[in-house]
Amino acid sequence: MVERSQKEVWKITPWVMLLLLLGNFALMAFDAREANSRQRVIRVWAQTSADFVQSPVTFISSAVTNYFSSISSMRTAQSENDALKQRVQELEVEVQNSKSLAFENERLKSLLELKSETAYRFLPAQIIGRDTSAWFDTSIINRGSLDGVKLNMPIVTNGGLVGRVTAVSPLTAQVSLITKDKSGLGAVIGALGTSNALGVVSGTGKREILEMGYVPGSVEVNVGESVYTTGQDGIYPAGLKLGEVAEVRAGSASEALKIFIQPSAKLSSMQEVAVLIYEPPARPEFDKSLPNANKKK
């Protein structure tokens, strides 16, 4: 091995730095240009290898947290038990009612010759990691392409829509939240088909609030109304709950309303999510040929 003097080392250091900076810059330029098409192989490899570290750490940390939270919850267990017993009795009555309603529903459906079918399949997943940079806010789940996860598949919780898959490796997938600044999706306030309050919901960068724009100022919107996806964005299916209207800033006949929505999914504390196995219907490709160009026969 060649021994270099300190002076020689200091001489070559700037050149080494320049070389490394150029390499990093090339990587960045490549990554930025191709961001919306296919993924980088290096990302897929890194995500796959990180899964072997992230999964055990998440398992251990959640086990420790659960242990301590179970100890603290023992104190309130007795009073909760009494309240739950009462609630069970109430629910039993409700279940009886809903059973009769379900029976009635089946009967009416059969009358209308409608087939009952589940629209989408859910794949339960656990959040095993978060974005390594404080500047971004994505999550990593323990389901990947081997489980059938694909790019842009919606992620939901029992509360509602969480986001979509933005990168997939064989064992893991990266999830971008709906609260991300540049995210946007078609939404409607109230029931799709009957409501005129259609607009675009976009992220604000804050986890507690979403913003909805392009809703005509003439439409009446009330605080507390539910907001659902319309499916017109070509990514999310129609009918997924986004949240509830938290604030409405009045517009006019010519000015759109500014609506703030509180997401119904608990984005700050979620640990369990589900991947919606949904692929949007293929859109017809636009004819890119020039109208006056000679077409090959």
Binding site: L21, D131, S133
Partner: peptide
């Protein structure tokens, strides 16, 4: 670090090298 982030691949490498 960048490999598991939504940020650009190489951005952290660039800044940390500098």
């Amino acid at each position: 670090t960048d490999a598991l982030s939504y940020g650009l691949l190489g951005a952290n490498g660039f800044s940390k090298t500098l």
